[in-house]
Design a protein around this nucleic acid. Structure first.
Length: 581
DNA sequence: GCCTGGTGCATACC
DNA sequence: ACTGGTATGCACCAGGC
């Protein structure tokens, strides 16, 4: 039986793409029998549905397409299809799950760069089920549930067929829409790649590291060779200062070097360590400000550096024109540093390149700190490429003058100074509180409150603490102060807890128990007791088989608890402590 | 019994 | 077809006192 159902929406995807999903009589890929095959073709904008009695039709449909797309098809649909006599040979096979996330190593891939209203997909996904992805991307998930027993049959009544088609159509449709979403998002990454990578959909499915390597190799005309992973050689990274003090009010600036690492590459010519145009003695060996380990060509910018520069300038243009290709270049530029420190990417890898890049950035920040301090400013904090300043003179022009000197000093100390290198004001701040490295809060001149790193913004934070903060936020901005006397916070906490004790629960996302090395870790205990996935657990003194010191129970179990049974340590000592006077 | 330092795990910042 | 380092916090455990 063949079923055609056309789709009226305009087609965005121009290639011969077939999105497919199957129904089987079981989950074991070795023994499962293919029962139904559902697909959507971007060639004719039609849905196709076949039973296993029509294998030639299914094979014909596959043969008519170059690219076959599914969800978890690498580990499930495809092997079953092959065991049942279908062939995907010579097809470009795409598994949307594996494009987003690599299950065996549990590493995020494209879910780390896909944005859904400002947030990264990875951070909004509770798990990697098809429906969860659809929901996170705000796609229509429809309603569909089916008793899988129906797939044990070999023939179906009219009403059963109707039910199956409804269900299968829905899954194909969801897969198709996820594919379309990703296609639209990733298409701007296509044009920078070589023709083979464009054809093979490598702009769509590679990790950002591989993508960057492929683009750089193609653009710079260097060989795309790979090496065995091997043990990692470590090197020093960014410099993070201790905060100067706790609380500051007045005119505060956050300044940061624009694209510090890419500019370190360009200005130090850091990829040109083995050029043939000069002798070792003629190479740049660094100086007092930049005591680099490697030796780099001073005669002309290298191939890779020229590509970085070209891309950087192009990105500035794209940003002005709001061209989405801007984001593709951003990824490449920011990933260059990462792949230069990874052996796998053989022809851009160099420990000196990576470590001299971070060294140059460390020196830039330290130089900026010194200059500002000598000019009478208080340097409150700095991390990698940024500096927080207290402007005691209340004179922005003077800050910018010192800034210009810093930039000039740096440019005078590198072989290839860049016009695009500079330092901008990232934020103008009225008050700031620094707690620890990478943990701070500030209120901007636009009355926006920014929190960095605090337990309050981590995913495991209790809803109680978040609610307390949300309630006080307008008042904090009003008073230009984030601190409250303990009793005031206690009042609010009590009010919220009277509503619902469960709000103290902490969020845990755990894997399958087998995947843990430590069988005593709290994550293992949770996984063992409650299964993998998301859990909200209430720390208490009374019930729950999870935890050795503190006990943790589920929200359901927590209904029998009294306020005094709760353990509020984390709430008071970490989540809310920054806000206690 | 308490403290310290190390480990595993998770997550944020750049 | 596997980007990097820096940093905090929790729970647990071993070892020292």
């Amino acid at each position: 039986m063949k079923w055609r159902k056309s789709c009226n929406k305009p087609v965005l995807v121009g290639d011969d793409v077939l999105v497919y999903d199957i129904e089987t009589d079981g989950l074991d890929t070795e023994t499962a029998k293919l029962k139904w095959f559902g697909a959507f073709s971007f060639k004719d904008n039609c849905y196709y549905f076949y039973t296993y009695h029509e294998m030639e039709h299914i094979q014909k449909l596959i043969d008519d397409h170059k690219i076959c797309v599914g969800y978890n098809n690498k580990d499930f649909d495809q092997p079953i299809c092959e065991n049942n006599g279908l062939s995907f040979e010579y097809k470009i096979r795409i598994d949307l799950l594996r494009v987003l996330f690599r299950p065996e190593t549990r590493t995020p891939v494209r879910e780390a760069i896909l944005k859904v209203d400002g947030q990264i997909l990875k951070n909004v996904l509770p798990n990697h089920k098809l429906k969860s992805v659809a929901k996170a991307l705000k796609l229509d998930q429809g309603k569909g549930d089916i008793d899988y027993k129906i797939f044990r049959k070999d023939y179906w009544t009219k009403s059963e067929i109707k039910e199956i088609l409804h269900y299968l159509h829905l899954d194909v449709k969801i897969t198709k829409e996820i594919f379309e979403y990703m296609y639209k998002e990733f298409l701007p990454m296509k044009y920078l790649m070589g023709p083979e990578d464009q054809r093979k959909y490598n702009w769509f499915r590679t990790s950002t590291g591989s993508y960057t390597y492929k683009v750089i190799c193609h653009q710079a005309g260097i060989e795309e060779e790979y090496a065995e992973p091997g043990p990692r050689k470590q090197f020093e990274g960014g410099f993070v200062s201790d905060p100067l003090g706790h609380e500051f009010k007045g005119k505060i600036y956050c300044l940061d070097f624009n694209s510090a690492y890419p500019h370190a590459f360009m200005m130090g010519n850091l990829y040109s360590h083995s050029c043939k145009c000069c002798t070792e003695d003629e190479k740049w060996a660094g100086n007092e400000l930049f005591p680099v380990e490697g030796r780099y060509c001073m005669k002309k910018p290298g191939k890779v550096e020229r590509v970085i520069k070209k891309l950087y300038l192009q990105r500035l243009e794209y940003k002005k024109k709001k061209d989405p290709r801007e984001y593709a270049i951003k990824i490449i530029i920011n990933t260059m540093y990462g792949i230069s420190g990874s052996q796998v990417f053989k022809n851009v890898y160099s420990l000196n390149t990576a470590s001299d890049c971070t060294l140059m950035a460390r020196q830039m920040v330290k130089h900026a700190r010194n200059k500002f301090e000598c000019a009478g400013y208080k340097v409150l904090y700095s991390d990698t490429d940024s500096v927080f300043l207290l402007d005691t003179y209340n004179n922005e022009t003077n800050v910018l003058r010192v800034r210009d000197e810093i930039i000039t000093d740096i440019k005078n100390s590198v072989p290839f100074p860049q016009d695009t290198f500079g330092m901008g004001i990232d934020a103008r701040i009225k008050a700031a509180w620094f707690f620890k490295k990478k943990h701070y809060v500030y209120i901007t001149e636009e009355n926006k409150i920014k929190i960095k790193g605090l337990p309050l913004i981590k995913s495991d934070c209790s809803r109680l603490s978040r609610l307390v903060f949300e309630r006080l936020k307008p008042d904090m901005i009003d008073r230009l102060d984030i601190k409250y006397p303990l009793f005031k916070l206690k009042e609010i906490v009590k009010e919220i807890l009277d509503e619902d004790l469960g709000l103290v629960a902490n969020y845990y996302k755990v894997r399958r128990p087998e995947t843990y090395k430590s069988q005593t870790s709290i994550q293992y205990q949770i996984a063992k007791e409650l299964g993998p996935g998301e859990h909200w657990l209430v720390p208490n003194r009374k019930i729950g088989s999870i935890g050795k010191g503190k006990k943790y129970c589920t929200l359901e179990e927590a209904k029998s608890l009294e306020v005094d049974d709760l353990i509020l340590d984390k709430v008071w000592e970490t989540e809310l402590s920054p806000f206690i006077k």
